[in-house]
Design a binder for these strands. Structure first.
Length: 502
RNA sequence: GGUCCCGUAGUUCAAUGGAUAGAAUAGAAGUUUCCUAAACUUUAGAUACAAGUUCGAUUCUUGUCGGGACUACCA
């Protein structure tokens, strides 16, 4: 055991493989451009990013992508409301983040819409008719039509408002460390897939109803009949998904295409896969839906229209502020510069939040209590980060590099905690493989937490710097270095940074 | 109605069919002249209910009760 340690403690890449050369695309972000990101997006982002990194660590060639839903009636709603109520307000003029500004007008639309409908109902109109006849809704539908015709004023407004939103998203993505190799836009992909519908019709996989709409019969697969093209010949959601799925495989020569999408779309993804299989595409089996459970609040489901969403930016700010509060209370880093402090707060706040969202099985729904802030003690990111900082503190104080002091591994008599630690460190390699096979970052979060816990027990029991003998000292230094390396490496796969001091 | 998912300490989460069901937090009690107490140690507390398969079930099957998702010519 001690030899294992001596051979590996300096290897920064311990546990990582370079064997599986598969080309994998992970699509892990699909925001709408009519409102800001929320807690659900964060779970999606952290999960997808982490899975991509874990697959990389196992030697795969990974392409990270996002698909932006930048068109459709919901975008027009924000646009109409902005025209009606904003008086030309921009992010510059209001000093508001672009995505939030646009989101405000989406909310405004719904308020106005509700008002108009209730007015119509009061004047004696049936609810259903009023839903359709409300002037603001009619205007919006007209705008969508203009958008599709490419009317310049509408496209200009659309471009302008979207650019605000992208700038806002970029800020958030940058802060949380999310990055993409490629971004797809639905305004570019929404016409895709129609050719395959024609092909499917010819092959008798699809059928046409009297009204001209095209369907696929999946009753044999335990699903229903599903519409793939409207009666007027326009695409629906699934039409473009068929086109995009095929395009991905053809353009990028993928071995596997992973979609990180909520489990509410289980049915949709099943249908997509079935259609592609029926079209005779041999890669249908390489489409994988990594479904994750919705984040719910203790007060119920998040609904953006009812204002019961946990906004991503607000939550991040809150976490960073909590980190600041704890740090100031403890007063251990009073000599830090402003910049260093700022960085530490971000590292800790985001670490707490990412760990919180990644430590549970992605497939399960999770419940978030907005009243209680995310903890910094116990099974948390900061706990693991603290263990790392503690080890760095030892290394700073001890003179000489641990590698410079040698000892005979066979001569080391291992104490129970030392033995447990080495055995635990050795498991890291298996853990990474397991996490990749199951596409489950929580395996790493659990591992890294238990490692930190074990090290802390060891730390409380035995002194490193003042070990019984010089041999023991260098042995324990190596033990500490390797623990720190694995903590850093494991947290990195979760998108969490480590502080040198905290 | 149909299809699918989920019910584990007060709370949030663990447990390829295997030993005494693990953690964290909240509760109780301790630990700092000694490497960072954001830590450590001790303590109490749970498999919704009922049958079945099995040497053995939190895990598999069926039923009951409870929660959720999907079932749009929305995306």
């Amino acid at each position: 055991l001690a030899s294992f340690l001596q051979n590996n403690f300096e290897d920064e890449n311990f546990g990582k493989k370079s064997l599986n050369h598969q080309r994998v695309m992970v699509e892990y972000s699909s925001p709408n451009t009519n409102k800001p990101l929320h807690l659900g997006h964060l779970r999606n982002n952290f999960l997808g990013w982490s899975v991509a990194e874990i697959l990389k660590a196992n030697g795969n060639d990974v392409i990270k992508t996002s698909i932006v839903n930048d068109r459709g009636i919901h975008i027009c709603k924000s646009m109409i409301a902005w025209q009606m109520f904003a008086n030309g307000a921009t992010p510059q003029s209001t000093h508001e983040k672009g995505d939030h500004l646009v989101g405000d007008y989406y909310v405004k639309f719904n308020d106005e819409y509700k008002k108009e409908v209730s007015e119509l109902v009061q004047s004696g109109m049936a609810k259903e008719e009023a839903d359709k006849e409300a002037p603001i809704m009619k205007k919006t539908q007209k705008m969508l039509l203009y958008w599709e015709q490419g009317k310049p004023e509408v496209r200009e407004l659309w471009n302008m408002m979207n650019s605000w939103v992208y700038k806002g998203f970029d800020e958030t993505y940058k802060r949380i460390g999310s990055d993409f190799d490629h971004t797809f836009y639905e305004s570019n992909t929404y016409l895709l897939g129609k050719d395959f519908v024609q092909e499917g019709l010819q092959k008798n996989i699809l059928f046409k109803k009297e009204d001209g709409s095209v369907w696929i019969d999946l009753t044999g697969e335990g699903l229903d009949e599903k519409l793939v093209l409207r009666g007027d010949g326009t695409s629906v959601y699934i039409t473009q998904d068929i086109g995009l799925a095929i395009q991905k495989f053809e353009e990028y020569h993928l071995d596997k295409s992973i979609y990180v999408i909520g489990d509410e779309q289980l049915y949709h993804m099943k249908v997509l896969k079935e259609i592609i299989r029926k079209l005779g595409m041999n890669f249908a089996d390489n489409i994988y839906h990594l479904s994750y459970g919705m984040v719910e609040l203790t007060t119920g489901k998040m609904k953006s229209r009812e204002g019961t969403v946990v906004d991503a930016d607000d939550l991040i700010d809150e976490m960073v502020a909590t980190a600041e509060k704890h740090t100031e209370e403890l007063g251990k880093v009073k000599d830090f510069t402003k910049k260093e402090l700022h960085e530490l707060y971000e590292t800790l706040g985001l670490g707490a939040m990412k760990f919180y969202l990644l430590r549970v099985d992605p497939k399960k729904r999770m419940i978030f209590n907005p009243e209680e802030s995310i903890d910094f003690h116990g099974f948390t990111g900061p706990f693991v980060q603290y263990t790392y900082a503690r080890i760095q503190s030892i290394l700073r104080k001890v003179e000489g590099q641990p590698s410079a002091i040698s000892y005979q591994p066979s001569a080391i008599h291992l104490l129970p905690l030392e033995r447990q630690l080495i055995i635990f460190l050795e498991k890291y390699s298996i853990i990474i493989t397991e996490a990749a096979n199951e596409m489950n970052p929580s395996i790493i979060a659990n591992y890294v937490f238990n490692l930190a816990k074990l090290y802390n027990s060891f730390y409380a029991e035995h002194s490193v710097a003042n070990a019984e003998t010089n041999e023991k000292k260098s042995f324990r230094l190596q033990l500490s270095v390797m623990t720190a390396n694995i903590i850093r490496s494991g947290l990195q796969l979760l998108g969490i940074r480590v502080p040198e001091r905290m």
